[in-house]
Design a protein around this nucleic acid. Sequence first.
DNA 1: AATACATACCTAATTCTTTTATGTATAAAG
DNA 2: CTTTATACATAAAAGAATTAGGTATGTATT
Lengths: 110, 110
Amino acid sequence: MKSSKDFLSGTLRTIILALLKEHGKMYGYEICQLTAKLTHEEILLTEGAIYPALHKMEKQGLLVSSKVKVNGRTRKYYELNQESLPEVAQEIRLLLDFSQHLKNLLKPAL
Amino acid sequence: MKSSKDFLSGTLRTIILALLKEHGKMYGYEICQLTAKLTHEEILLTEGAIYPALHKMEKQGLLVSSKVKVNGRTRKYYELNQESLPEVAQEIRLLLDFSQHLKNLLKPAL
DNA sequence: AATACATACCTAATTCTTTTATGTATAAAG
DNA sequence: CTTTATACATAAAAGAATTAGGTATGTATT
């Protein structure tokens, strides 16, 4: 049986960007936790997906990272590169639009 | 730059199922056209994606097909296997829920 | 007659993301 | 002292979709 996670493909990157846009600096583990909390454990980002995604976006110049030691553990904070803000906003809008189209397509079938 | 099509992954199968559930028998080309029309050309299903998806779902027993010759051209109609109707309805509901969660996550960032 | 466009199907190679499965290391809780 | 939570990372494999081809018929244009 399908589950919520099967729909995640393609949206992971945009979810991360949206959370960073709203919350400023965040670290990977935190992004996973917050997403789970906000969706009542229905959207669960896996670490195997999120870390490579963060690394890629940093390499692309969308994100900037900084390491901080907290309680003996290292956190790697990411934040949006301010220059990419318009692009990020546009991407979020696109996904929201897509989401709305999806709703229009699926709703009548129920 | 990202475009709408980058978000399609994972949702293609469910879109097809929803259209078949609402419209009864449809053929591949028709599904592409209708989706384009309903979304004002924003969600464009490609034939390279849709035909393999249809074949797979038929093999899985979710769909049943029948060939019809119309104006010299062959159409292959697909319809839902009635037995899989509850499962399909559930999958559509899941994607709608996911879509709502997505909205909740992204909206605050705009 | 020739050309292009729309209809209608199909598949194969490549690309890309994500899953699954690990691995490392520290702190707190039982 | 063992488990759970925190926090990072990577690598192999799976899977879906894109890109790019191919076949064939009907209709419209030039």
